[in-house]
Design a protein around this nucleic acid. Structure first.
Lengths: 341, 341
DNA sequence: CTGAAAGCGCTAACAC
DNA sequence: GTGTTAGCGCTTTCAG
């Protein structure tokens, strides 16, 4: 039998208690499955009233009373990013056994507004914050004064008083570049790279690229560094503009898989074969890399280890707000696929 | 000057009021930017105390008092799905001007648990719910007794008392199939299809496929319908198993872009050329379809119109809980790209 | 422009 | 097993 639909939204526990002829505490105990605190018959009666009336617990009230919400937020700059989607999936899976739900929220607007997010009030509605810092820098973080357990991911130089899961940006970029050099490439375009500026993700990866060139005595050419974005469209546009400008290149290092896939799309569209004419490497080792045509070699920042570390630091911090800050940096690996054969 | 870091977490408005030598109401007014209710000097003093102490508003308390949270949840079966990511991005953008944030939460476990989600309490922490129904059926919805403004998306036959933005599942599948037939295909594999059962997404799209075959008098072969999942891996496996079983086919209709891309990966790996040997169509018209190699033709369910409709129905329902339920079904289009040339 | 009182709906702590 | 009390931190309402 289908129960009656909800009577009204404004129903409270007190209403249910009155209808079931019990105290509010008993209703609360039933709702919270405290089996030993309520008799079977009483329980049945309360559940029946709940089913009939369509009563639902008021979550904000519960959260206020309990001083916690049970949710942890992953603040991302872009909902439509495969990388963050996969990270979110991993985190959700790991947090659930500990009684936390993962929710994703958008950092305000562009990549540069990550720090705004920390000072905007709505993230405080969660028990902890996981923040990806790609554009922001160390100093910004101190200014933002986070007041919740916070784990920062993706940046290298975070002030030492923040918990931090770092990506091996320089090391991974070196691996990517070496893979291309080993495959015979000598003129490697970098999509999304950045030569100067504070230690952001693009700067660090470009540094690793440069290190690898130097270690193999391959000349550095700033004209091969395209300071574009790192999305699919950016990758395609970057390659198109290189070709249009007549710049010669025999390989592409995309700072993300998305950028690399966009590049591959442009290469295919202009009749260049991967890996025969141009070799390509991406970064993130997203699921898409495996299924690209041809399959895309990619830097694997050890996403699984990063998710483990994020959860570990978070739980520790929630348990002890005064624990010393810690940094974890899982080493990057590279996964070789057909795009660098 | 960098302000002092937070003193402690448990700071309340009353504490700030005492330190600034004003009433809690004045602090509240400052925090809520009610400019006309507090003098410039008082305001300055309060803000200074807030900066010094690192006070932050307790969101659950505010939400309890206000009876709303300002957030709308998109409940998805999979964080790592490009389709939902793109939908979320569109919705967030459209809801922000109305003062709502979009948050993404995971429906419990598998695709089949969408309805569980409605009865699980934590979604009640938001002002409204947007639920994608792919596996569930009409009847399940009634049983779930949603007690919040709810907009259901993606399913055709939802009970008429729910607001509903439907995808043109049958029509879109017909377009996809016709595109393949027009390109000369005669044996079209369907990845993720389902022949029998309640009106779910796979059943409806398979129906559209069948309709198109019938209208062109092309024989129906149940052996071409692979009732797999619709992810990248599923698409690849489906094609591999067809090949292994020696089933002949000259086209693939992936029920999602992901399934189609997985199929293309398998086709490339086995030396089959797209579109020359096998033509392919996907569904969702995600950004990835544009950048696939070769670019993937895809059914565009008019994602933009769907997002518009979702937001419109939601705002209407929030404004008037008793408004008559409405269904919107933006017609699907097909975007022709190289995979069906 | 500023403040005092009341209460949003729930659950921890403690009776009985 | 069940009930009573108190109060989480905020904002609405109403006084001044």
């Amino acid at each position: 039998m289908t129960p009656q639909p909800a009577e009204r939204a404004g129903l409270t526990m007190a209403d249910v208690a009155r209808l079931a002829d019990v105290s509010v505490m008993t209703v609360s105990n039933v709702v919270n499955d405290r089996e030993d605190r309520v008799g079977a018959e009483t329980r049945r009666r309360v559940l029946e009233v709940i089913a009939t009336t369509g009563y639902r617990v008021n979550m904000p009230a519960r959260h206020l009373r309990q001083g916690r919400t049970g949710s942890i937020v992953l603040a991302v700059p872009d909902f439509a990013s495969a990388y963050f989607g996969e990270l979110a999936a991993r985190l959700a899976e790991r947090l659930r056994p500990h009684g936390f739900r993962l929710v994703m929220e958008l950092t305000r607007g562009t990549l540069d507004d990550e720090l705004e997010t920390l000072s905007s009030p709505h993230l405080d509605g969660h028990d902890a914050i996981i923040l990806s810092m790609t554009a922001g820098t160390a100093r910004d973080l101190v200014d933002a004064q986070p007041r919740k357990p916070l784990v920062v991911i993706g940046e290298r130089s975070v002030p030492s008083d923040f918990d931090h899961v770092a990506m091996d940006n320089v090391g991974g970029a070196r691996l990517a570049t070496e893979a291309l050099l080993d495959a015979g490439a000598r003129r490697i375009a970098v999509i999304g790279g950045q030569v100067d500026g504070p230690e952001s993700m693009p700067v660090l990866r470009t540094q690793g690229y440069r290190d690898a060139l130097a270690s193999k005595s391959v000349p550095w050419d700033e004209g091969l560094v395209i300071s574009s974005g790192v999305g699919l469209a950016d990758g395609k546009l970057a390659i198109m503009s290189l070709i249009e400008a007549g710049v010669q290149f025999d390989a592409v290092f995309g700072l993300t898989d998305a950028a690399a896939l966009g590049a591959m799309s442009a290469l295919a569209a202009t009749g260049r074969r991967v890996p025969h004419d141009v070799k390509v490497v991406g970064w993130d080792n997203t699921e898409l890399a495996t299924y690209a045509v041809p399959p895309l070699s990619s830097v694997e920042p050890d996403n699984s280890a990063m998710a483990d570390a994020i959860v570990r630091l978070l739980l520790r911090r929630l348990d002890d707000a005064d624990a010393p800050a810690e940094t974890a940096t899982p080493p990057a690996r590279i996964v070789h696929r057909a795009s660098t054969r």
